[in-house]
Simulated assay, not measured.
Amino acid sequence: MDAQIALVRHGQTEWNAEGRLQGQVDIPLNRQGRAQARTAGAELISIQWDVLVSSPLGRAVETASLLGADLGLEISERLPDLMERNYGAGEGRVVLGMSREKIDAILETAEPEAMVAARGIRALGHLVTAHPGMNLVVVAHGTLLRLTLEAVLGRPHPRIRNCEAVLLNVSDLEKVLRDAGDQELAPRG
């Protein structure tokens, strides 16, 4: 059986509830986010997970710690490449209910989507190389995970809800890594 990666978006924060772009601003989980993380952990226990990793941002670390309590795992690594997209001048802006046109104007200073996807693929490539054949739980951020999945699967992926887990076959990632070549996606730092 193919090894799996559970890509988990962190639990809800106050900024999520307010419809704000968080990006790399380190906003903690709220009460709802902690409850979501506990529920997600209970949903993942049907698979034997071997490794738990996280973005270094506090909302992802706390979510991973709560998941890990249910899964019997501790965070083994906090990877900077798993941080959320940098939204530039848009970080902290409320976009809930805003037109697509206005959101796109705000995102003009944001990190390019292709760079975000490349970071996500690079991080996952590092993890599958470091932990061959193991099932991985990766806790990160909605936009990074969605863009990474789109790049790996070659098709659009819907928005990922707080604490939603999306399963990815390691073989799908390995194909993308082979096609892209090691130099372009080699881990940094």
Rank of each mutant, 00 (worst) to 15 (best):
E62W: 03
E62R: 13
E62I: 06
E62F: 06
T63W: 05
T63Y: 04
T63P: 03
A64K: 01
A64Y: 00
A64L: 03
S65W: 04
S65Q: 04
S65G: 03
S65L: 02
S65E: 05
L66P: 09
L66W: 07
L67S: 02
L67H: 01
L67C: 01
L67P: 01
G68H: 00
G68N: 06
A69P: 02
A69N: 03
L71R: 02
G72W: 00
E74D: 14
I75F: 05
I75M: 02
I75H: 12
S76A: 14
S76P: 15
E77R: 09
E77G: 07
E77L: 15
R78L: 08
R78T: 04
R78P: 08
L79I: 15
P80H: 00
D81S: 05
M83H: 01
E84K: 03
E84V: 01
E84S: 05
E84M: 03
R85W: 02
R85C: 01
N86G: 12
Y87V: 01
A89Y: 10
G90C: 14
G90D: 10
G90Q: 10
E91N: 02
E91F: 01
G92E: 15
G92N: 15
G92C: 12
G92R: 10
G92S: 14
G92P: 14
R93I: 01
R93M: 08
V94K: 11
V95I: 12
V95F: 06
V95C: 12
L96E: 13
L96P: 05
L96G: 14
G97D: 03
G97K: 08
M98S: 08
M98G: 08
M98C: 09
M98R: 10
M98F: 07
S99T: 04
S99C: 10
R100D: 07
E101S: 03
E101W: 07
K102R: 15
K102F: 10
K102P: 13
I103T: 09
I103F: 10
D104G: 13
D104F: 15
D104Q: 13
D104Y: 15
A105N: 13
A105C: 13
I106K: 15
I106R: 06
I106H: 10
L107A: 10
T109S: 09
A110C: 03
A110Q: 00
A110N: 02
P112Q: 02
E113G: 12
E113N: 15
E113Y: 10
A114R: 11
M115Q: 10
V116R: 05
V116C: 12
V116F: 12
V116P: 12
A117E: 08
A117I: 06
A117Y: 14
A118N: 12
R119G: 15
R119M: 15
G120I: 09
G120A: 11
I121P: 06
R122D: 13
R122Y: 11
R122M: 07
A123P: 13
A123D: 08
L124S: 07
L124M: 10
G125K: 01
G125C: 06
G125Q: 08
G125M: 01
H126Y: 07
H126G: 05
